[in-house]
Amino acid sequence: MNNNIEPILTGRGLVKRYGRVTALDHADFDLYPGEILAVIGDNGAGKSSMIKAVSGATIPDEGEVMLEGKPVHFTSPIDAREAGIETVYQNLALSPALSIADNMFMGREVRKKGFLGKYMRMLDRPKMEQIARDKLSELGLLTIQNINQTVETLSGGQRQGVAVARAAAFGSKVIILDEPTAALGVKESRKVLELISDVRSRGIPIVLISHNMPHVFEVADRIHIHRLGKRLCVINPKDYSMSDAVAFMTGAKEPT
């Protein structure tokens, strides 16, 4: 990315300690408008901790997060969501016993208009179901027949699809995906990668955390390599090979 464009989401000097473990050790992070930024790193490098710190799921011990150049202090995922940042967490954060529609609108339910909604607090089920159905088919997940079926009756790929669709439907500024293809088969992964490209084509920047080098090199504009709780370097996938990237993230080779 060129230097005169301002990053949309920035982390500076982020520190997060869990007891004696330092998950984040003065980590920096930059996401530019319209790009797909891949974040790679060994297991336990602190990738999830970093995106949790910029998405309000944890509060960093030190450091600063800025959205569009302005400092933000998210104290819950709700704050980040209200600022336009949607995250698909590694564990998906879906409620298995609730329906697809309930899950997509969790925490931002739509109420009926008029008396029923205002005084009886009644949810507008038909409207939420319609929007959920539209979003899923927009993202090519039409195979899900019944929007009222519970999430636990879906396959792993379909659940991932619901989580990604939820983020894509509501994310207005940034979408963060933590290992969205880790649990998926080849075809399901392909579907999620297509979703990611679709979302990017709408101009929304994406953070993609992944272990899968072919996927990362296929879709990423830039690759943030995370090692031992901090950003080691950022590389352009056109300038480096997959084995270079693996060598950096495992410490076998130092970036120049």
Binding site: T87, Y89, L92, A93, L94, L98, D102, M106, G107, L123
Partner: peptide, 18 residues
Amino acid sequence: RHVYAIGDDSDAAELSGV
């Protein structure tokens, strides 16, 4: 719905905005 979501998986509920 939030009451059910909390009983189902309270961490997931928290992350999805409850």
